[in-house]
Design a protein around this nucleic acid. Structure first.
Length: 435
RNA sequence: GGAGGGAUGACAGAGCGGCCGAAUGUACCGGUCUUGAAAACCGGCGUGGGCUUGCCCACCGUGGGUUCAAAUCCCACUCCCUCCGCCA
């Protein structure tokens, strides 16, 4: 949620900033107007309430002095005012609710550092990395044996069974099997082990209350993109960011505790409602995938370093896995609702010949903290909203695809990076007839 | 799922429907005393909002209701504890 006080003081600034991400000025103006109306109503309602309270006190005093005539008279007067007060309060709440609804729909103010642009075509490529780049090797050329899509490789090796997934849950719910399932498990263990020295491992629930979803900014705006369990008022989490952001909801944290760094691997559920019919094959876009998330609550001063740390960890994993990737600075128009600044990592997957987004490292400033009401107490006793940052490290379905395509050998087997061997029973090889 | 008990400030724990935003204790902060510390004593000590910055308003698990007036009375719900049942 953006800062209402800032909107009040610098409406032009907010209007200009949000215009960078395509929010029309009239929407911002409407919020400002609601705020003005709400405050006027609030003052009137509070004035009346103060009057009622004052009269009630006099009623009590008159009663004590046995002056029942005065007491009844005052009570009658207070009752009449009470009716007015109820109406005023009702109007205040109605406008207040409308204001809150509008405010929750407004996206975050983009960081000045986020490049201009309207959509993903305007994102700025910052750099690329590939194996051997530091030694002066050119961007890799991929052999014919690597130009095979992962869904074909998966079928050939018996490690991915998309048809079984369809049978169980419908399209875009993949089923991994054998060495393929083990590879997926290895990736999660590998990444979590790397982060544990600095990030506390969390295993959160896979479902969240509506309130929890609102805190991160996923609701009310993106309801269509999420799975709902209506009977129980729950939503399937689209990312571990959701539970992690709400872990300290409503709390005032000691400044000395910050930054609080957390990591969690969870299943992530996405309806992909806006992408129906796109990327339906294989693992490019699926309704359920595993992802390790890195997350931090921090002070504004710590946020930049925390953001950089998450980015370098995500890149570190990609480098350890020897995957070619590029780094994108998302333009203002392509930022997620809650983010002020986002760096995406896209891995190159030679079989499908595409760059696949496998990490999104975001700095939310106090946007989510404001919604989730997570604050910290500064050394001088004041309270302030924390900053939240997070990033994937990494999203495994697409990594699985890129690995399988990149490391396919001429004989059809897979020779995966050695770093995974300890997590795969000592061997990083998946043979054509792997057991 | 059934029966009972509970939910008040960082914590513990009071609170006849009417100066209760809330006693008291602990913790914490400042001060006096002390060579220093402890003890003792004095003072301070929740969060948010509005505007004429001094005042006003809201918040005692959540949401309704009764009343001139609700932490206090009524209803529903949630969570926690104990016991029973069921279950991985």
């Amino acid at each position: 949620m953006i800062d209402l006080v800032q909107l009040r003081r610098e409406p032009e600034f907010v209007r200009a900033a949000l215009a960078r991400r395509g929010v029309s000025g009239t929407v911002v103006d409407a919020v400002v107007a609601l705020d003005v109306e709400h405050r006027a109503l609030l003052q009137e309602a509070e004035r009346l309430r103060a009057e009622v309270k004052f009269l009630s006190r006099l009623v009590g005093e008159a009663r004590r002095e046995k002056d029942l005539a005065t007491a009844d008279q005052l009570a009658e007067k207070s009752r009449a005012l009470g009716d007015e007060e109820r109406q005023a309060t009702e109007a205040t709440e109605r406008v207040g609710a409308a204001l809150r609804d509008e405010l929750l729909m407004l996206p975050n103010v983009p960081s000045p550092e986020a490049p201009d642009g309207a959509d993903e075509s305007d994102n700025v490529e910052v750099r690329r990395w590939w194996v051997g780049m530091d030694e002066g090797l050119a961007f890799p050329t991929y052999g014919e044996h690597q130009r095979v899509a992962h869904w074909d490789i998966g079928t050939q090796l018996g490690i991915l069974d998309l048809e079984a997934g369809v049978k169980l849950a419908g399209s875009m719910f993949p089923l991994y099997r054998g060495a393929g399932a083990r590879l997926l498990r290895a990736l999660g263990f590998f990444a979590l082990d790397r982060h544990l020295s600095d990030y506390e491992e969390i295993r959160p629930p896979s479902f969240a209350l509506t309130e929890t979803m609102v805190s991160t900014g996923h609701l009310p705006k993106s309801a269509d993109d999420m799975y709902a369990i209506e009977r129980d008022g729950l939503w399937a989490i689209p990312t571990a960011e959701v539970p992690l952001t709400s872990m300290h909801r409503g709390e005032i944290l000691d400044e000395a505790r910050l930054p609080i760094r957390l990591t969690a691997q969870t299943a992530c559920f996405r309806r992909e409602a806006g992408a129906a019919g796109r990327d339906t094959r294989g693992l490019l876009r699926v309704h359920e995938f595993d992802k390790v998330e890195l997350f931090a609550y921090c002070t504004p001063d710590q946020a930049e370093a925390a953001h950089a740390d998450i980015l370098s960890r995500a890149e570190g994993l990609l480098q350890s896995l020897g995957l070619t990737y590029r780094v994108l600075d998302l333009c203002a128009g392509d930022l997620g609702t809650s983010s002020a600044r986002t760096i995406d990592l896209e891995v190159f997957s030679p079989g499908v010949d595409r760059w696949l987004e496998v990490s999104s490292v975001s700095w939310f400033r106090d946007f989510q903290a404001r919604r989730a009401n997570v604050r910290y107490r500064t050394s001088d006793g004041a309270t302030a909203f924390v900053h939240t940052v997070n990033g994937s490290a990494l999203a495994w379905a697409r990594i699985w695809a890129a690995l399988v395509e990149t490391y396919r050998q001429a004989d059809g087997s897979l020779q995966l990076p050695d770093v995974l061997a300890p997590y795969m029973g000592g061997s990083a090889t998946i043979g054509a007839k792997a057991s």
